[in-house]
Simulated assay, not measured.
Amino acid sequence: MTPGARLFLRRAGIGVGQLVVLLVLVFALSLLLPGDAADVQNNTVLSAAQQQNARHLLGLDVSPVTRFLDWLGHAARGDFGTSYAGSADVGSVITSPFLVTGLLAVSALLVLVPVAVVAGFAAGLRPGSARDRVITSISIGFDSIPDFVLAVLLVTVVSLRLDLLPATFLGADLSTLVDRPEYLVLPLVVTVARVAAPLVRLIRAGVIDVLDQPYIAQARRLGVSRVSLLARHVAPNALAPAMQELGRTGDGLLSGVLIVEAVFAMPGIASELIGAIGNRDEPVILAIVAITGVIAIVVNAVIDLTGYWMNPRAAAQVRR
């Protein structure tokens, strides 16, 4: 088995274990909420028999452990069950919100990577210059501002005072994002700004470190062109550590997307999760956590493999 395959299997095994633990914790915490789905849906006064019947219809009259294991077994086969609110299939309930969240997350990633690479290289190629100081100052500034504070500032200035972009997604849906992409601009800026800041500084540090290596000086003495030097020698070695940071950044990107959705009232998975918690809708809550966890596992595994591919010397560590 190749070191890359061994790395993937190791990451996948750890990820599955983490996902199961996460689901257990989320389910246990949901049980601590006051009331259950039957109490929330039947806010009128019911007799004890009627309340018991409501719990039986929702499947709440069995033990929590049995309920969780039953859901987990069906989820492993791709069946996330039926929502307690409205009796709709959980898959149909969460599909549209996940598409909205996915659109924002993918758009943010497509903007994040080139912006971070270009800014990091621009600063690292001329350390100490005015350009370096400006880029570093901006990244530190964005890194120190919480997502929701930056979102409120942008809404206040860009939307309310200047009236340039929409301030909220109220009344909008997935089709609106496709037809009117200006709705996506402010959420995208907030999502990318905070996550890109540490990545820019890491790439900058990587570029500076690589340029100080003896083999770079030797390549210059041998007349290697600047473009070839950057593309074949500097970039792979400088970006390999950044790829590992991108894995951690991916988790921050996901949480940042959820915060941005809440601030801008986007009809994404964050809004659906908040509604499910309010309705004590266990199948929807667990399905959202499970799918989000799987996405995080896959993204981190891909990033680890990409970092390994860019830095073959990591194979020695994988064999241990």
Results as ranks from 00 to 15, higher is better:
residue 5 A to I: 14
residue 6 R to A: 15
residue 7 L to S: 10
residue 9 L to N: 07
residue 18 Q to A: 12
residue 21 V to S: 04
residue 22 L to I: 03
residue 24 V to P: 01
residue 26 V to D: 01
residue 27 F to M: 12
residue 28 A to E: 08
residue 29 L to I: 14
residue 32 L to H: 13
residue 34 P to H: 11
residue 38 A to S: 15
residue 41 Q to L: 15
residue 44 T to E: 14
residue 45 V to D: 15
residue 45 V to T: 15
residue 50 Q to K: 13
residue 53 N to K: 13
residue 53 N to E: 15
residue 56 H to Q: 13
residue 59 G to N: 06
residue 61 D to L: 04
residue 69 L to Q: 14
residue 69 L to C: 12
residue 70 D to T: 14
residue 71 W to M: 01
residue 82 T to D: 00
residue 82 T to F: 02
residue 83 S to L: 03
residue 87 S to K: 09
residue 90 V to W: 00
residue 91 G to N: 01
residue 94 I to E: 00
residue 95 T to W: 10
residue 96 S to H: 06
residue 96 S to D: 13
residue 99 L to W: 11
residue 101 T to K: 04
residue 102 G to A: 04
residue 105 A to R: 03
residue 107 S to P: 04
residue 107 S to W: 07
residue 109 L to V: 09
residue 110 L to T: 07
residue 110 L to M: 12
residue 112 L to S: 05
residue 119 A to E: 11
residue 120 G to K: 03
residue 120 G to V: 09
residue 126 R to W: 09
residue 132 D to T: 04
residue 139 S to N: 02
residue 143 D to A: 11
residue 143 D to G: 13
residue 146 P to D: 04
residue 146 P to A: 06
residue 152 V to H: 02
residue 152 V to W: 04
residue 156 T to G: 02
residue 157 V to F: 15
residue 157 V to M: 15
residue 165 L to V: 10
residue 165 L to H: 00
residue 167 A to L: 05
residue 169 F to L: 04
residue 169 F to I: 06
residue 172 A to W: 04
residue 172 A to H: 06
residue 172 A to F: 06
residue 172 A to D: 05
residue 176 T to I: 11
residue 177 L to E: 02
residue 177 L to H: 06
residue 184 L to P: 07
residue 186 L to D: 01
residue 193 A to M: 10
residue 194 R to I: 10
residue 195 V to A: 01
residue 195 V to R: 00
residue 195 V to L: 03
residue 197 A to K: 03
residue 201 R to G: 06
residue 205 A to N: 06
residue 207 V to I: 08
residue 208 I to N: 05
residue 210 V to S: 00
residue 211 L to G: 01
residue 215 Y to R: 05
residue 216 I to Y: 01
residue 217 A to E: 05
residue 217 A to F: 03
residue 218 Q to F: 11
residue 221 R to Y: 07
residue 222 L to N: 10
residue 222 L to F: 12
residue 222 L to H: 12
residue 227 V to N: 09
residue 228 S to W: 11
residue 230 L to N: 07
residue 230 L to P: 05
residue 233 H to T: 06
residue 234 V to F: 03
residue 236 P to V: 14
residue 237 N to C: 12
residue 238 A to G: 07
residue 239 L to K: 07
residue 240 A to M: 07
residue 241 P to E: 08
residue 243 M to W: 04
residue 246 L to F: 11
residue 248 R to W: 13
residue 253 L to Q: 08
residue 254 L to Y: 12
residue 255 S to R: 10
residue 256 G to H: 13
residue 259 I to A: 15
residue 260 V to Q: 09
residue 264 F to D: 04
residue 266 M to R: 15
residue 269 I to T: 14
residue 269 I to P: 00
residue 270 A to L: 06
residue 273 L to Q: 12
residue 273 L to H: 09
residue 277 I to A: 08
residue 278 G to Y: 08
residue 283 P to M: 14
residue 283 P to K: 10
residue 288 I to V: 14
residue 290 A to N: 03
residue 291 I to V: 14
residue 294 V to R: 03
residue 295 I to M: 07
residue 297 I to V: 15
residue 297 I to E: 02
residue 299 V to H: 01
residue 302 V to S: 11
residue 303 I to N: 05
residue 304 D to A: 06
residue 305 L to Y: 09
residue 305 L to E: 10
residue 308 Y to P: 08
residue 309 W to E: 07
residue 311 N to H: 11
residue 312 P to V: 09
residue 313 R to A: 11
residue 314 A to F: 12
residue 315 A to Q: 09
residue 317 Q to S: 12
residue 318 V to S: 02
residue 319 R to H: 07
residue 320 R to A: 07
